[in-house]
Design a protein around this nucleic acid. Structure first.
Lengths: 340, 340
DNA sequence: TTGTAGGCGTTATCAG
DNA sequence: CTGATAACGCCTACAA
């Protein structure tokens, strides 16, 4: 199996390499008959261009990179899927740079960044520092942030504050007043805990005139175990909450299971709300917030593609979230209501 | 921001490009002092080689491709993570080719295969046809199959038959005799339903002298809804099973939830076993089979790397599975046991 | 141990 | 409209 070069096609078709190249790039400056002949020869010989040569000559690799923290599996799996879909048929291929530790994160967010020179970059759930953002902004290739923002960089995300407000409003409507928040970091490497969700939570309570309490605000890891542990902590409080909003479905399901194991009825004795609307939530009937992960990826990739077409500047976009009401929330128990 | 070439480094360091290249490739034929000087210059100038040029020259792209069906999210997410880990620091980057439809599958399994010319390929959960396998075998670059097998191709997987035998043996030990199997296809594009799990299931029952029944063997989609639907079908049988083995955790959790919604106690009235041991299973206390997805990816990538080092031939490898006993299985209800 | 030159397969520029 | 030819940046003989 010998490799066929553009030269071979040219010789076989009785034309020059330039013509073959023009056919390949869809240039209009080729006679229809010639084009047909060249195309037929390409087909017959099974010619496929060597991308490295093309990349060397043009300076474009036709590779896009996605930098993804591999922790929140449900999230990144769906986002990647969306990206893939947007890229299908675009001529670009996707290089995935998985990030598990700080060193890797820094490596990929620092500019000259790594092995494969990509034509553009998608950064998922990772917040660049001011310095990193500046570098990214002045880089020769575009970067789009997904579920994160940074000064001057295009991004696609959702309004976590609004989402949290919706959740709390729903619980208030059901009659709850003792509502806790168990959050988890979106960016595992962020220096500060996630602020948006907490602000939405506080704002919704403030609007309703319900006092907040530090004891009702926890931040913990994004795992079922952490969710269960947080639940225990809250239940041990002198005045335990009658409803808990979690920062992720995994935590919520872990807590849900733990609560039932303790003999608590959900939603009878305790209401629980997740976040994300992953498959998990659907399986167990968890009320949650739908985060359009797939669309996030798809839109971000589309945006990046557009930037590559020279269609700058890019406008950041924010996708809507929606409360998904399932079976894990109800009215607070009567004894709890009286104490609230 | 101007691009720095190897030439610039050479000039700046007062050496020839050959020397710089030798330093880059770690050749021993460079004086220590010269190497130091070159290294320092590289650092100072922030030089990074243009991979396309290197690829063109050497014929190696240093890109590995993973062909992955994007359906079974839990599975592919973990496998990808394992692959990533194995590749970290290897100098190879990972191009992910997501497969959602038959056309895409065929595209990637057919040889000249697509945009990025990769140095090697990992195919996950997709079974090549005889013809495809032959082509892959004679290809100039190696392919490793993950959770699939094909004549003459190296693979890493698990023994699904043994896994199913373990599950059934466990249920038999608990006293069940009316054991159903709700399976799902591993390869979404396979022409035949998955055979290994079913064979293990049948073999275990046969060994125990328990008759099998076609009505107890279902194959359906890998979703919570499909699991719930299958449950309904089985419960509607004249003699419903007292235990159900599922082909995936998602199905099992869907069924678990549906069963409880129907007022059945699990494990009191019905025992349920999942498959995979995804996060899902842990969250809800599902007895299941641990499939080492991450290790699968890691081993496969390691194998591929070894092949790239010329360390052929590759020996297929099979990773062990293990039953994970949680709370979803118990003894059959007494009335059921008497009828079994 | 080091420098020099040729070529990897394409595309793009320039004459024709 | 088409054909020759010069880069693109790097690696690697080969010569020094």
């Amino acid at each position: 199996m010998v490799r066929i070069r553009i030269q071979d096609v040219a010789r076989e078709a009785g034309v020059g390499v330039g013509t073959v190249s023009r056919v390949l790039s869809g240039s209009p400056r080729v006679a229809a008959a010639t084009r047909q002949r060249v195309l037929a020869t390409i087909e017959r010989l099974g010619y496929a261009p060597v991308l490295a040569a093309r990349a060397l000559r043009t300076g474009r690799t036709h590779v896009l990179r996605a930098v993804v923290p591999l922790f929140q599996r449900h999230f990144y799996a769906e986002v990647l899927r969306g990206i893939e879909r947007a890229l299908a048929g675009s001529g670009y291929s996707l290089a995935v740079a998985g990030v598990e530790e700080r060193r890797e994160r820094d490596h990929w967010l620092r500019l000259p960044g790594g092995r494969t020179r990509a034509d553009g970059q998608l950064i998922v759930s990772l917040t660049p520092s001011a310095g990193e953002a500046r570098q990214l902004r002045t880089a020769p290739w575009p970067t789009v942030l997904v579920d994160a923002t940074a000064e001057g960089l295009p991004s696609v995300g959702v309004d976590h504050a609004a989402a949290a407000r919706q959740v709390v409003a729903h619980l208030l409507r059901l009659g709850h007043t003792r509502i806790a928040l168990v959050d988890c970091p979106a960016d595992p490497f962020a220096l500060h805990p996630p602020a948006a969700r907490r602000e939405g939570y506080r704002a919704a309570l403030a609007t309703a005139g319900v006092p907040t309490s530090p004891a009702y605000e926890l931040v913990t890891a994004c795992s079922a175990l952490a969710g269960a542990t947080a639940l225990e902590r809250l239940l041990a409080l002198p005045t335990p909450p009658s409803a808990i909003c979690f920062g992720s479905d995994v935590q919520a399901v872990g807590a849900l299971h733990a609560a039932r194991g303790r003999g608590l009825r959900v939603p009878g004795d305790l209401s629980i709300v997740g976040y994300g609307d992953t498959e998990l939530a659907e399986c167990v009937g968890l009320t949650t917030v739908h985060i359009p992960m797939r669309e996030l990826g798809e839109r971000a990739a589309t945006l990046l593609l557009r930037a590559l077409d020279g269609d700058t500047p890019l406008t950041p976009c924010e996708l809507p979230v929606a409360l998904v009401v399932r079976a894990s929330c109800g009215a607070p128990p009567v004894d709890a209501g009286s104490r609230g």
